[in-house]
Amino acid sequence: MNSTQLLQPMEQTESANKIPVEPILKVKNLKVHFPVKAGIMQRTTGYVKAVDDISFHVKRGETLGIVGESGCGKSTMGRSLIRLNEPTEGSIIFNGNDITAMSEKELRPLIRRKIQMVFQDPYASLNPRKSLGNTLNEPLRAHNLHGNQRERDERIKELLNVVGLHSSSMNHYPHEFSGGQRQRIGIARALVLNPDLIIADEAVSALDVSIQAQIINLLEDLQEQFDLTYIFISHDLSVVRHIADRVGVMYLGKLVELADKAELYVEPLHPYTKALLSAVPSIRSKGAQTRERIVLKGDIPSSINQPSGCVFHTRCPVRMEHCKVAIPTLKEVKPGHFVACHLYD
């Protein structure tokens, strides 16, 4: 799908080209900082800036991939979008509703139905004490959907069919299923309330490669069937390349680049994206010409004591003097291609 013309620039939303469809989700200057406490008095001595000033839009019907190394804040970002982690600053607007400060009661009829999540661990994400039927029944009851148990059972059976499980497995418990089957259950659970947006956080990372493919296919089929929008979080660049329409790259709590998949994988602009992509042999060899392997020196700085200026400057191969002091902002340097780097100022 070509979504370039549907992209809105971050900062000039109003002035730029006409917006054909209102984005399903608008995230603006989102920050999630965790206080670091120390000593017997539990004084706050600093903050883990797990998500630091991130802005992006998610277009209805697309799959937005989010990639980045472990600990860069992908999960925290995904969770804060549904208020499982409380945003420290910024705003989250879903379908025109600002959900940033809503109470749980206000969230329930809205995002607790319309945004769902598929989790990473097929073992930890299912309650071992609940049968498959109970797991799927509970949300329907909580939202008073489908008047009676018979209708709910119908809905559950239909759902099991959709995700490729036998309806006879309703009375079985999680430990009786394989990893791939459990992930299907997790997907069925995410679908049970008819959501519009699904956040998949490393949804296939814990699975065998052959099963990954099945689950990815299932997710794609479901997207078509139910007009779903996905935010697909993964550290696996190849999987994201397959499923995403657009891809955002995170580094130390920041979104450093965001572009169409076709463009990002072939012509990355940010030095970090270049290095990240060059580390995957299959991607490196694919483009027009074989790219150099770029090996970054040093470790990822701790997210407690973040570097000044551009957070990437400590490891950047093309660092300039003012990168140490000036924080780059995410700018649209080509249509639909956003990058936060002083090289493109």
Binding site: M117, E138, G186, L193
Partner: peptide
């Protein structure tokens, strides 16, 4: 635990 996060995501009280 992820299953508790899932329950919260689904609006379970």
């Amino acid at each position: 635990a992820e299953f508790v996060l899932a329950a919260r995501t689904l609006g379970i009280r």
